[in-house]
């Protein structure tokens, strides 16, 4: 029986009275890639913000390794967050710092390593994402794909146990997007990390997803769950089929 790294129980998300999604219940299995998919505006990114502890849920619970995130005190929450890495959609690199400084900041804040050890780790992380030698560049001097990879280097700086990706292939050309997908798989294999990917890119969904959750924007809840390839072979409902076939017919 595989264990769940994250459990979402009866989560309802709303801005004011406007309910985005209701009664979401699902598990993120450990050591696998779980894809959260759905059409634009269905609340994928909002769900991600709830999972990351940036927004408090209206109702329901988010459990990390069996521990209720919002029920925990501030110190516990911080220690949970330390075990998480996030790659934001636009990278969210700090523009006033070089790549090396961006990656070094979490290491400086949360470990007691010496300056030299930090520099070595920074170079290692940048090499892992294919950016060896770019330590002294500022984010503004890089292309979108490079910025995203640099942000990934920052996200894995502290060797997180869970990695979140928000629309990893957004704004990337097909080749860069595929390389990023490969990198995600490589990190899953070698770090043994649990990975959550929020996306609507079909190519990515089928390439990386072991497990998936479909958010329906009409029903405002989850209407399908399972490995993406199984969902494509046996779509449980019309909207899932439409989504996974780009609106095409079964034939």
């Amino acid at each position: 029986m595989e264990t769940a790294a994250i459990k979402i129980e009866n989560l309802t998300m709303a801005y004011g009275d406007n309910v985005i999604q209701r009664d979401l219940t699902f598990e993120v299995p450990e050591g696998k890639v779980t894809v959260i998919m759905g059409g634009s505006g269905c609340g994928k990114s909002t769900l991600l913000r709830h999972m990351l502890g940036l927004v408090e849920p209206k109702r329901g619970r988010v459990l990390y390794w069996g521990e209720d995130f919002w029920g925990a005190d501030e110190a516990r929450r911080l220690s949970i967050m330390r075990r998480i890495g996030v790659l934001y959609q636009g990278g969210a690199l700090w523009s006033s710092m070089t790549l090396a400084e961006n990656v070094a900041l979490p290491l400086k804040e949360f470990t007691r390593l010496t300056e030299r050890e930090i520099q070595e780790l920074v170079s290692l992380k940048l090499a892992l994402v294919g950016l060896a030698g770019f330590e002294d560049f500022y984010p503004a001097e890089l292309s979108g794909g490079m910025r995203k990879r640099a942000a990934l280097a920052r996200a894995i700086a502290l060797d997180p146990e869970i990695l979140f990706f928000d629309e990893p292939s957004a704004g990337l050309d097909p080749v860069s997007a595929r390389r990023l997908d490969e990198l995600i798989l490589e990190l899953k294999e070698s770090l043994g990390a649990t990975i959550v990917v929020v996306t609507h890119e079909l190519a990515s969904i089928f390439a990386v997803g072991d497990h998936s959750v479909f958010l329906d924007s009409v029903e405002k809840t989850i209407t399908a769950m399972g490995p993406p390839k199984d969902l494509l072979a046996h779509p449980p409902n019309e909207r899932v089929r439409e989504f996974l076939t780009r609106g095409g017919s079964l034939n």
């Binding site: 060896a132 030698g133 770019f134 002294d136 560049f137 294999e189």
Partner: peptide, 20 residues
């Protein structure tokens, strides 16, 4: 460990950017 070896290989395969 297999994962460590793969990561080291991945890091080594990265082309070095032109130095500043």
């Amino acid at each position: 460990p297999k994962g460590a070896k793969r990561l080291l290989d991945l890091a080594a395969s990265s082309p070095r950017g032109q130095a500043r």
